[in-house]
């Protein structure tokens, strides 16, 4: 026997989530159906509210419900220091260290010829525009410590060189091949202290 159409549809939708296979989708669907209506309604409205109210910050592309985001809008932040990361989740990871007091710029990816991602597919133009305003003195390249992140940092370091702004790279000591947001806070804080010029 097949599942009734509404259950089948729920399972199909859940299966589209990353990391969720058919079995997990089925388990989640049946679990949700067993919960009280208010609980399911809370989940549904949380999904919609997040989707409706969250958007990328027009300055740094971090995910936010205000524009500019809380970090870009905070006057106590050091506007001469800019940290470049691949994804919004990296901003959260670095913020958790409480070590960095500058602002961020999210590239939305890393250069990867294999996946067809070139410099033009990343938010590099907006980065150059921010630098032209002249307030930024140092750019910390905090792309992931894997080969794509490394190559992207190298690329940016070379691109920014003629602009006369200082660039530095998060020190190694990060696990090779790891995602930035998996790295624990202590390691990340140490990496921030030990960033090196490139």
């Amino acid at each position: 026997m097949e599942y009734a159409a509404p259950i089948a549809r729920l399972i199909a939708e859940l299966e589209r989530l990353p990391g969720v296979g058919p079995k997990t989708a089925q388990r989640l669907a049946l679990h949700l159906l067993n919960r009280p209506r208010e609980e399911v309604a809370a989940l549904a409205s949380a999904l919609l509210e997040a989707k409706d109210r969250i958007h990328p910050c027009s300055v740094c592309a971090n995910l936010t419900d205000t524009d500019p985001c809380a970090i870009c809008g905070d006057p106590r932040r050091d506007e001469s220091l800019l940290c470049v990361v691949e994804e919004p989740k990296d901003v959260i990871a670095l913020e958790r260290t409480h070590e960095f007091h500058g602002r961020y710029h999210v590239l939305m990816g890393a250069i990867s010829p294999l996946s067809g991602v070139g410099p033009d597919d990343l938010r590099i133009e907006p980065l150059l525009a921010r630098l032209k305003e002249g307030k930024i003195r140092e750019v910390v390249l905090a792309t992931d410590p894997d080969v794509e992140g490394e190559a992207t940092a190298m690329y940016l370091a070379r691109l920014l060189k003629p602009l006369g702004v200082k660039t530095s790279r998060l020190a190694r000591g990060l696990p090779e091949g790891g995602d930035l947001d998996y790295v624990d806070e202590v390691t990340l804080a140490r990496a921030l202290e030990g960033r090196r010029a490139i």
Binding site: P113, G118, P119, V147, E148, E150, A151, M154, Y155, R158
Partner: peptide
């Protein structure tokens, strides 16, 4: 040139 340099560097490092 910039792209090649970046990937030379990444490959050479690894």
């Amino acid at each position: 040139a910039l792209l090649l340099e970046a990937w030379n560097e990444a490959f050479a490092t690894a």
